[in-house]
């Protein structure tokens, strides 16, 4: 993965889909949960498949889904990629995750400082709320803010390193990109991931 693969928008901020592509490239058996809204479209744009769980709802729940999955599968990397609005709705889950210290869980917030699916209303991060600071204060020691392409590559390495829990607030450009939609039947989304993890026995549990 070269630095050139990570794009900057005209605003000087990171281009979200190039960030997500970088985080998921050559992922091995890493599991990814995409939070409601644009992050779900972003992980889909990077390549849909059974190791992806894009969310069509459950706003505020993505990080906790990651915790349940990380506890159930301690030998696998679990990456939650979500938005600032979604994370803010479940902000208490940073405290919950910190109490368990799951080494295999990373939570990456793509922070465009807006509610992108509903008309670009400002979120709290637009007014300076420091999500990485909140995560660090909760007890997620490796909590970082990411603004530059080289920091994205460092984040990518840290996610693969497995010395989590890890939290990242990635400041991204706020452009709304073309929709790239995953399957909408959520029973399929869970069943395909379970089968990828557990094999055919998933359906006999």
């Amino acid at each position: 993965m070269s630095l050139d693969a990570i794009e900057l928008a005209k605003s000087g901020r990171l281009e979200r889909r190039s960030v997500v592509r970088a985080l998921l490239a050559e992922r091995g058996d890493m599991l990814a949960i995409g939070g409601l809204g644009a992050p779900a479209w972003d992980i889909t744009a990077a390549g849909d498949g059974p190791l992806n769980l894009p969310l069509w709802g459950g706003m505020g729940g993505a990080a906790m889904m990651g915790l349940g999955l990380a506890l159930a599968q301690p030998s696998r990397r679990v990456l939650v990629i979500t938005g600032d609005g979604e994370m803010l709705m479940g902000i208490g889950s940073l405290a919950t995750i910190a109490t368990k210290q799951p080494r295999n869980l990373s939570v990456v917030v793509l922070d465009n400082e807006h509610y992108g699916e509903t008309g670009m209303q400002e979120t709290a991060t637009h007014h300076g709320v420091d999500l990485a600071g909140m995560a660090r204060a909760a007890g997620i020691t490796d909590s970082r803010r990411v603004d530059r392409p080289d920091e994205v590559l460092a984040l990518r390495d840290a996610i693969r390193g497995g010395a989590g829990p890890l939290f990242a607030q990635v400041k991204i450009d706020d452009a709304s990109l073309p929709l790239v939609l995953p399957p909408r039947e959520a029973a399929i989304l869970q069943a395909r991931m379970r089968e990828a993890i557990l094999g055919p026995a998933a359906h006999l549990q």
Partner: peptide
């Protein structure tokens, strides 16, 4: 949300 994640992981 956590119970959903747990079930995903078996």
């Amino acid at each position: 949300a956590m119970l959903f994640g747990a079930w995903l992981g078996g």
